[in-house]
């Protein structure tokens, strides 16, 4: 009996390492751990999965500046919780997060409920501006002497850019950025948009004009990057997007794997959520790099 339970426990720990557990499985694992407390703090399978996940991980790209600023702001809030003598400084980073985070952002779910004073702080800080906020925050994290010696730690925060501005910035800053036309596969003379991609930064944007709106409840558009290092039947997914109007739309490309030698791009219509491997039955745009 003990062996059976032991095996079941290892089974659940392994499953957890791969793709998490359902609520029921999580409860079962909790109960088994109570029965076998020697497993309580055993993370070896999760650590193994993490090590495998790190194998061949391309970490050349650093955090975007705006995201870095948000993480700093979250850290300040996290470390300052309950510290009444530091509340005045909390206004700034909290406001920064409020401004740049989308409504209902999941970070808010991970923190405890916000007080009236914190909300008031956000309001003050919104007026004060993002630049001042992050500057105040940054200097709090540095000893005064270090601030002078290491000016890069008091960078002025970059304002949140629109997707169009991010695209322009990539085009201007990435030396290897390429811009190619996306065309109708049935009529290659008909240009439906363009795509900007930087291999070095592993970032890119697709821009469309007049792409038909899709029914987001039934289907989605999906970007594919055909890479010379990948099997041609399994191009790299660049993410999914929906179109709700007839105007211009710019979509950030989120390649699921490192793109090494891109040779073509395709946009397909797929079922909701996208697919792992496309049948390429409904290709709406293509481009050759």
């Amino acid at each position: 009996m003990k062996d059976l339970q032991d095996n079941r426990l290892v089974e659940l720990l392994a499953d957890q390492s791969f793709f998490g557990l359902s609520a029921e499985e999580g409860m079962e694992l909790g109960q088994l751990k109570k029965r076998f407390p020697e497993w309580e703090n055993d993370f070896s399978l999760e650590l193994t999965a993490a090590a495998i996940g790190l194998a061949n991980l391309d970490v050349r790209e650093d955090l975007p500046a705006n995201l870095r600023a948000q993480v700093y702001a979250n850290a300040d809030e996290f470390f300052s919780e309950g510290a009444t003598d530091q509340e005045v400084f909390n206004f700034a980073p909290s406001a920064n997060k409020t401004i740049v985070s989308p409504p209902g952002a999941s970070v808010a779910e991970t923190t405890s409920g916000f007080s009236f004073w914190q909300n008031l702080g956000w309001a003050f800080a919104a007026v004060a501006g993002i630049a001042l906020a992050v500057n105040i925050w940054t200097t709090r994290f540095e000893k005064p002497s270090e601030v002078v010696k290491n000016p890069e730690t008091i960078q002025m925060p970059k304002p949140e850019l629109t997707t169009a501005q991010k695209r322009d910035e990539l085009l201007a800053s990435a030396k290897d950025a390429v811009q190619i036309s996306l065309t109708n596969p049935k009529n290659e003379k008909e240009i439906v948009g363009d795509m900007v991609w930087s291999n070095e930064k592993q970032r890119g944007y697709a821009r469309f004009r007049g792409l038909p709106a899709n029914d987001a409840a039934k289907e989605t558009y999906q970007v594919w990057i055909v890479d010379e290092t990948q099997d041609s039947k399994t191009p790299i997914s660049g993410g999914v997007f929906d179109v709700d109007g007839s105007g211009e739309i710019i979509v950030p490309i989120n390649a699921q794997l490192a793109v090494k030698k891109p040779k073509a791009v395709a946009i397909t219509k797929e079922k909701v959520g996208g697919v792992v491997v496309s049948k390429q039955e409904n290709v709406v745009a293509i481009a050759k790099v």
Binding site: G53, L54, L57, D58, V59, R60, E61, D62, L63, P64, L67, R68, V71, Q202, G239, V240, F241, P252, N254, A255, Q256, L257, G273, G274
Partner: peptide, 15 residues
């Protein structure tokens, strides 16, 4: 930062 950003991009549907 870079490591977490890379993992997040790999395992997230969009940026």
């Amino acid at each position: 930062g870079g490591l977490i950003w890379s993992l997040a991009r790999r395992m997230s549907p969009n940026p």
